[in-house]
Protein backbone atom coordinates (compact mmCIF):
# COMPACT_ATOMS: atom_id res chain seq x y z
CA UNK A 1 0.00 0.00 0.00
CA UNK A 2 2.86 2.39 0.72
CA UNK A 3 4.45 1.25 -2.50
CA UNK A 4 1.11 2.06 -4.14
CA UNK A 5 1.25 5.57 -2.74
CA UNK A 6 4.57 6.09 -4.46
CA UNK A 7 3.44 4.55 -7.71
CA UNK A 8 0.32 6.73 -7.83
CA UNK A 9 2.39 9.81 -7.07
CA UNK A 10 4.91 9.03 -9.80
CA UNK A 11 2.15 8.49 -12.35
CA UNK A 12 0.54 11.79 -11.38
CA UNK A 13 3.85 13.62 -11.66
CA UNK A 14 4.71 12.08 -15.00
CA UNK A 15 1.30 12.81 -16.47
CA UNK A 16 1.77 16.46 -15.69
CA UNK A 17 5.23 16.52 -17.18
CA UNK A 18 4.41 16.39 -20.87
CA UNK A 19 7.92 17.20 -21.95
CA UNK A 20 9.44 14.31 -20.11
CA UNK A 21 6.79 12.03 -21.53
CA UNK A 22 7.61 13.25 -25.00
CA UNK A 23 11.29 12.70 -24.38
CA UNK A 24 10.58 9.20 -23.17
CA UNK A 25 8.16 8.15 -25.87
CA UNK A 26 8.90 10.23 -28.96
CA UNK A 27 12.59 11.12 -28.87
CA UNK A 28 13.74 7.52 -29.40
CA UNK A 29 11.44 7.21 -32.40
CA UNK A 30 12.79 10.41 -33.86
CA UNK A 31 16.42 9.40 -33.49
CA UNK A 32 15.77 5.87 -34.73
CA UNK A 33 13.99 7.20 -37.80
CA UNK A 34 16.76 9.62 -38.49
CA UNK A 35 19.41 6.93 -38.22
CA UNK A 36 17.33 4.63 -40.36
CA UNK A 37 17.06 7.27 -43.07
CA UNK A 38 20.74 8.10 -42.93
CA UNK A 39 21.88 4.50 -43.18
CA UNK A 40 19.33 3.53 -45.74
CA UNK A 41 19.51 6.54 -48.00
CA UNK A 42 20.92 4.69 -51.02
CA UNK A 43 17.82 2.58 -51.34
CA UNK A 44 17.90 2.36 -55.14
CA UNK A 45 16.81 -0.84 -56.88
CA UNK A 46 19.70 -3.24 -56.60
CA UNK A 47 21.30 -4.03 -59.95
CA UNK A 48 22.47 -7.52 -60.63
CA UNK A 49 24.18 -9.12 -63.58
CA UNK A 50 23.79 -12.80 -64.27
CA UNK A 51 26.15 -14.93 -66.27
CA UNK A 52 25.63 -18.56 -67.21
CA UNK A 53 22.36 -20.48 -67.09
CA UNK A 54 19.92 -17.85 -65.95
CA UNK A 55 16.47 -17.96 -67.52
CA UNK A 56 14.59 -19.22 -64.49
CA UNK A 57 16.45 -17.07 -62.00
CA UNK A 58 15.99 -13.85 -63.94
CA UNK A 59 12.25 -14.00 -63.56
CA UNK A 60 12.48 -14.67 -59.85
CA UNK A 61 14.90 -11.84 -59.34
CA UNK A 62 12.78 -9.40 -61.27
CA UNK A 63 9.86 -10.27 -59.08
CA UNK A 64 12.00 -9.47 -56.07
CA UNK A 65 12.58 -6.03 -57.55
CA UNK A 66 16.10 -6.51 -58.78
CA UNK A 67 17.31 -4.71 -61.87
CA UNK A 68 18.56 -7.75 -63.77
CA UNK A 69 20.93 -7.91 -66.74
CA UNK A 70 21.94 -11.13 -68.44
CA UNK A 71 25.29 -11.28 -70.27
CA UNK A 72 27.75 -13.91 -71.48
CA UNK A 73 30.87 -12.48 -69.93
CA UNK A 74 31.39 -10.29 -66.92
CA UNK A 75 34.24 -9.29 -64.58
CA UNK A 76 34.88 -7.46 -61.35
CA UNK A 77 36.52 -4.70 -63.38
CA UNK A 78 33.29 -4.17 -65.26
CA UNK A 79 31.39 -4.25 -61.97
CA UNK A 80 33.42 -1.37 -60.64
CA UNK A 81 33.01 0.53 -63.84
CA UNK A 82 29.26 0.14 -64.04
CA UNK A 83 28.71 0.29 -60.28
CA UNK A 84 26.84 -2.96 -60.57
CA UNK A 85 25.69 -4.08 -57.12
CA UNK A 86 25.99 -7.80 -57.66
CA UNK A 87 27.16 -10.42 -60.08
CA UNK A 88 25.82 -13.93 -59.98
CA UNK A 89 27.58 -16.58 -61.96
CA UNK A 90 25.45 -19.68 -62.35
CA UNK A 91 27.35 -22.83 -63.08
CA UNK A 92 25.98 -26.34 -63.30
CA UNK A 93 27.21 -27.27 -59.83
CA UNK A 94 27.42 -24.06 -57.91
CA UNK A 95 26.59 -20.41 -57.86
CA UNK A 96 29.15 -17.74 -57.36
CA UNK A 97 28.06 -14.42 -55.96
CA UNK A 98 30.18 -11.31 -56.07
CA UNK A 99 29.07 -8.22 -54.25
CA UNK A 100 30.27 -4.72 -54.92
CA UNK A 101 29.66 -3.87 -51.26
CA UNK A 102 30.18 -0.15 -51.60
CA UNK A 103 27.08 0.10 -49.45
CA UNK A 104 27.21 -2.67 -46.89
CA UNK A 105 23.54 -2.27 -46.08
CA UNK A 106 22.55 -3.09 -49.58
CA UNK A 107 25.15 -5.76 -50.10
CA UNK A 108 23.93 -7.57 -47.03
CA UNK A 109 20.38 -7.22 -48.18
CA UNK A 110 21.11 -8.65 -51.60
CA UNK A 111 22.96 -11.52 -50.09
CA UNK A 112 20.17 -12.26 -47.65
CA UNK A 113 17.51 -12.03 -50.31
CA UNK A 114 19.39 -14.26 -52.67
CA UNK A 115 20.16 -16.65 -49.90
CA UNK A 116 16.50 -16.96 -48.96
CA UNK A 117 15.42 -17.28 -52.56
CA UNK A 118 17.87 -19.97 -53.44
CA UNK A 119 17.45 -21.85 -50.21
CA UNK A 120 13.92 -22.83 -51.18
CA UNK A 121 15.16 -24.41 -54.39
CA UNK A 122 18.56 -25.76 -53.79
CA UNK A 123 19.97 -27.60 -50.86
CA UNK A 124 21.69 -25.53 -48.14
CA UNK A 125 20.43 -22.16 -46.94
CA UNK A 126 22.26 -18.94 -47.57
CA UNK A 127 24.91 -18.19 -50.12
CA UNK A 128 28.48 -17.16 -49.66
CA UNK A 129 29.86 -14.21 -51.53
CA UNK A 130 33.01 -12.58 -52.73
CA UNK A 131 33.38 -8.90 -52.09
CA UNK A 132 34.70 -6.25 -54.39
CA UNK A 133 35.01 -3.77 -51.56
CA UNK A 134 35.37 -4.56 -47.89
CA UNK A 135 34.38 -7.92 -46.55
CA UNK A 136 31.49 -9.71 -44.97
CA UNK A 137 32.22 -8.25 -41.54
CA UNK A 138 31.39 -4.76 -42.67
CA UNK A 139 28.70 -3.61 -40.24
CA UNK A 140 25.33 -2.44 -41.41
CA UNK A 141 22.33 -0.77 -39.92
CA UNK A 142 20.39 -3.99 -39.80
CA UNK A 143 22.90 -5.62 -37.58
CA UNK A 144 23.11 -2.84 -35.08
CA UNK A 145 19.56 -1.58 -35.17
CA UNK A 146 18.54 -4.19 -32.58
CA UNK A 147 21.19 -2.79 -30.31
CA UNK A 148 19.98 0.73 -31.02
CA UNK A 149 16.56 -0.19 -29.73
CA UNK A 150 18.09 -1.52 -26.54
CA UNK A 151 20.30 1.50 -26.25
CA UNK A 152 17.44 4.00 -26.44
CA UNK A 153 15.43 2.11 -23.89
CA UNK A 154 18.46 2.10 -21.62
CA UNK A 155 19.45 5.70 -22.17
CA UNK A 156 16.11 7.41 -21.67
CA UNK A 157 14.98 5.28 -18.76
CA UNK A 158 18.34 5.77 -17.05
CA UNK A 159 18.17 9.51 -17.44
CA UNK A 160 14.57 10.07 -16.44
CA UNK A 161 14.52 7.72 -13.45
CA UNK A 162 17.89 9.04 -12.26
CA UNK A 163 16.88 12.66 -12.49
CA UNK A 164 13.54 12.02 -10.79
CA UNK A 165 15.10 10.40 -7.76
CA UNK A 166 17.75 13.10 -7.76
CA UNK A 167 15.05 15.75 -7.65
CA UNK A 168 13.56 13.90 -4.73
CA UNK A 169 16.93 14.09 -2.98
CA UNK A 170 17.72 17.72 -3.69
CA UNK A 171 14.23 19.00 -2.90
CA UNK A 172 14.41 17.33 0.51
CA UNK A 173 11.36 15.18 -0.09
CA UNK A 174 13.40 11.99 0.14
CA UNK A 175 14.65 13.01 3.57
CA UNK A 176 11.11 14.02 4.46
CA UNK A 177 9.99 10.49 3.59
CA UNK A 178 12.35 9.22 6.27
CA UNK A 179 10.06 10.75 8.88
CA UNK A 180 7.20 8.58 7.63
CA UNK A 181 6.89 4.83 8.22
CA UNK A 182 7.93 3.98 4.65
CA UNK A 183 10.76 1.48 4.48
CA UNK A 184 13.80 1.79 2.28
CA UNK A 185 12.89 -1.17 0.12
CA UNK A 186 9.41 0.28 -0.33
CA UNK A 187 10.86 3.48 -1.74
CA UNK A 188 12.97 1.57 -4.24
CA UNK A 189 10.13 -0.79 -5.13
CA UNK A 190 7.79 2.15 -5.66
CA UNK A 191 10.27 3.79 -7.96
CA UNK A 192 10.92 0.62 -9.90
CA UNK A 193 7.26 -0.08 -10.49
CA UNK A 194 6.21 3.54 -10.99
CA UNK A 195 8.81 4.23 -13.62
CA UNK A 196 8.71 0.65 -14.79
CA UNK A 197 5.19 1.30 -16.07
CA UNK A 198 6.42 4.15 -18.24
CA UNK A 199 9.50 2.24 -19.32
CA UNK A 200 7.22 -0.61 -20.35
CA UNK A 201 5.05 1.65 -22.48
CA UNK A 202 8.18 3.15 -24.02
CA UNK A 203 9.58 -0.27 -24.81
CA UNK A 204 6.39 -1.36 -26.54
CA UNK A 205 6.29 1.82 -28.61
CA UNK A 206 9.93 1.61 -29.68
CA UNK A 207 9.79 -2.08 -30.52
CA UNK A 208 6.60 -1.84 -32.54
CA UNK A 209 7.73 1.29 -34.33
CA UNK A 210 11.07 -0.25 -35.27
CA UNK A 211 9.62 -3.47 -36.49
CA UNK A 212 6.41 -2.37 -38.15
CA UNK A 213 7.16 1.17 -39.30
CA UNK A 214 10.91 1.18 -39.89
CA UNK A 215 10.81 -2.45 -40.93
CA UNK A 216 13.99 -3.33 -39.10
CA UNK A 217 14.84 -6.98 -39.60
CA UNK A 218 13.47 -9.28 -37.00
CA UNK A 219 13.50 -12.97 -37.44
CA UNK A 220 12.90 -14.09 -33.89
CA UNK A 221 9.93 -13.65 -31.58
CA UNK A 222 8.73 -10.12 -30.91
CA UNK A 223 7.87 -11.17 -27.35
CA UNK A 224 11.49 -12.06 -26.75
CA UNK A 225 12.45 -8.61 -28.05
CA UNK A 226 10.03 -7.01 -25.60
CA UNK A 227 11.12 -9.23 -22.73
CA UNK A 228 14.75 -8.35 -23.34
CA UNK A 229 13.95 -4.65 -23.47
CA UNK A 230 11.99 -4.82 -20.23
CA UNK A 231 15.03 -6.30 -18.55
CA UNK A 232 17.17 -3.56 -20.09
CA UNK A 233 14.75 -0.96 -18.71
CA UNK A 234 14.96 -2.56 -15.27
CA UNK A 235 18.75 -2.38 -15.32
CA UNK A 236 18.63 1.23 -16.52
CA UNK A 237 16.10 2.16 -13.84
CA UNK A 238 18.06 0.68 -11.00
CA UNK A 239 21.39 1.99 -12.27
CA UNK A 240 19.96 5.47 -12.87
CA UNK A 241 18.49 5.73 -9.39
CA UNK A 242 21.67 4.33 -7.87
CA UNK A 243 23.98 6.79 -9.62
CA UNK A 244 21.68 9.65 -8.72
CA UNK A 245 22.87 9.22 -5.14
CA UNK A 246 26.33 10.24 -6.32
CA UNK A 247 25.11 13.37 -8.08
CA UNK A 248 24.38 16.66 -6.39
CA UNK A 249 22.55 18.28 -9.28
CA UNK A 250 20.89 17.47 -12.56
CA UNK A 251 23.98 18.71 -14.32
CA UNK A 252 26.10 16.22 -12.43
CA UNK A 253 23.65 13.51 -13.42
CA UNK A 254 24.26 14.49 -17.04
CA UNK A 255 27.97 14.02 -16.44
CA UNK A 256 27.35 10.31 -16.02
CA UNK A 257 26.39 10.09 -19.69
CA UNK A 258 29.94 10.24 -21.10
CA UNK A 259 31.14 8.20 -18.14
CA UNK A 260 28.59 5.43 -17.96
CA UNK A 261 26.54 5.47 -21.15
CA UNK A 262 28.92 6.30 -23.97
CA UNK A 263 31.56 3.65 -23.16
CA UNK A 264 28.86 1.01 -23.25
CA UNK A 265 28.07 1.91 -26.86
CA UNK A 266 31.49 0.68 -27.91
CA UNK A 267 30.72 -2.78 -26.66
CA UNK A 268 27.35 -3.22 -28.26
CA UNK A 269 28.53 -4.64 -31.55
CA UNK A 270 28.90 -1.51 -33.62
CA UNK A 271 32.61 -2.18 -33.46
CA UNK A 272 33.65 -5.80 -33.76
CA UNK A 273 34.73 -7.16 -30.40
CA UNK A 274 36.96 -9.87 -31.88
CA UNK A 275 39.50 -7.33 -32.97
CA UNK A 276 39.82 -5.73 -29.52
CA UNK A 277 42.60 -6.35 -27.06
CA UNK A 278 41.86 -8.99 -24.47
CA UNK A 279 41.55 -6.59 -21.56
CA UNK A 280 39.22 -4.41 -23.58
CA UNK A 281 37.00 -7.38 -24.29
CA UNK A 282 36.87 -8.20 -20.59
CA UNK A 283 35.90 -4.61 -19.92
CA UNK A 284 32.97 -4.99 -22.28
CA UNK A 285 31.80 -7.98 -20.32
CA UNK A 286 31.04 -5.93 -17.21
CA UNK A 287 28.72 -3.69 -19.20
CA UNK A 288 25.00 -4.42 -19.20
CA UNK A 289 24.54 -3.14 -22.75
CA UNK A 290 26.98 -5.75 -24.03
CA UNK A 291 24.60 -8.51 -22.95
CA UNK A 292 21.57 -6.51 -23.97
CA UNK A 293 22.82 -6.08 -27.54
CA UNK A 294 23.95 -9.66 -27.73
CA UNK A 295 20.46 -10.83 -26.81
CA UNK A 296 18.66 -8.36 -29.07
CA UNK A 297 20.88 -9.04 -32.04
CA UNK A 298 20.49 -12.73 -31.40
CA UNK A 299 16.70 -12.57 -31.44
CA UNK A 300 16.19 -10.00 -34.15
CA UNK A 301 19.01 -10.72 -36.56
CA UNK A 302 19.76 -14.35 -36.02
CA UNK A 303 16.37 -15.61 -34.92
CA UNK A 304 17.59 -17.00 -31.60
CA UNK A 305 15.15 -18.72 -29.27
CA UNK A 306 14.66 -18.07 -25.57
CA UNK A 307 17.14 -20.81 -24.68
CA UNK A 308 19.79 -19.22 -26.81
CA UNK A 309 19.56 -15.82 -25.14
CA UNK A 310 18.76 -17.11 -21.65
CA UNK A 311 22.31 -16.52 -20.48
CA UNK A 312 22.26 -12.87 -21.56
CA UNK A 313 18.89 -12.36 -19.89
CA UNK A 314 20.13 -13.96 -16.70
CA UNK A 315 23.11 -11.64 -16.60
CA UNK A 316 20.84 -8.62 -17.12
CA UNK A 317 18.62 -9.84 -14.30
CA UNK A 318 21.67 -10.18 -12.05
CA UNK A 319 22.78 -6.66 -12.92
CA UNK A 320 19.32 -5.36 -12.00
CA UNK A 321 19.29 -7.33 -8.76
CA UNK A 322 22.73 -6.03 -7.82
CA UNK A 323 21.78 -2.42 -8.53
CA UNK A 324 18.51 -2.74 -6.63
CA UNK A 325 20.29 -4.06 -3.55
CA UNK A 326 22.88 -1.29 -3.81
CA UNK A 327 20.04 1.24 -4.07
CA UNK A 328 18.53 0.00 -0.84
CA UNK A 329 21.96 0.06 0.79
CA UNK A 330 22.61 3.60 -0.45
CA UNK A 331 19.49 4.76 1.40
CA UNK A 332 21.11 3.63 4.66
CA UNK A 333 22.71 7.02 4.62
CA UNK A 334 19.36 8.22 5.95
CA UNK A 335 18.33 5.48 8.34
CA UNK A 336 18.71 1.83 9.08
CA UNK A 337 15.26 0.48 8.14
Amino acid sequence: MRINALIIRIIRQMRRDKRTLALLFLAPLLVLTLMYLIFDSSEAEPTITITGDSTQLTEQLEQAEFDVTSVEQFSTEEMKEKNEHAWLNVDKQKMELTLLNDDPTQAKKIQMQLGNMLATEKNGPGISANYVYGDKDTKIFDTFSPMLIGFFVFFFVFLIAGISLLKERTSGTLERLMATPIKRYEIIAGYLVGFGIFAFIQTIIIVFYSIYVLDIVHIGSIWLVILTNILIALVALSLGTLLSSFAASEFQMMQFIPLVIVPQIFFTGIFPMEGMAGWLQSLGKVMPLFYASDALKGVMYKGFTFQEIAFDLLILLLFAALFIVLNIVALRKYRSF
Partner: peptide, 11 residues
Protein backbone atom coordinates in the same frame (compact mmCIF):
# COMPACT_ATOMS: atom_id res chain seq x y z
CA UNK B 1 7.23 19.49 9.73
CA UNK B 2 10.63 20.08 8.19
CA UNK B 3 12.34 23.45 8.32
CA UNK B 4 12.53 23.61 4.54
CA UNK B 5 9.33 22.68 2.79
CA UNK B 6 9.72 19.30 1.19
CA UNK B 7 6.79 19.25 -1.20
CA UNK B 8 6.17 17.82 -4.64
CA UNK B 9 5.90 21.08 -6.53
CA UNK B 10 4.51 19.52 -9.70
CA UNK B 11 1.53 18.12 -7.80
Amino acid sequence: MAQSDALYTDL
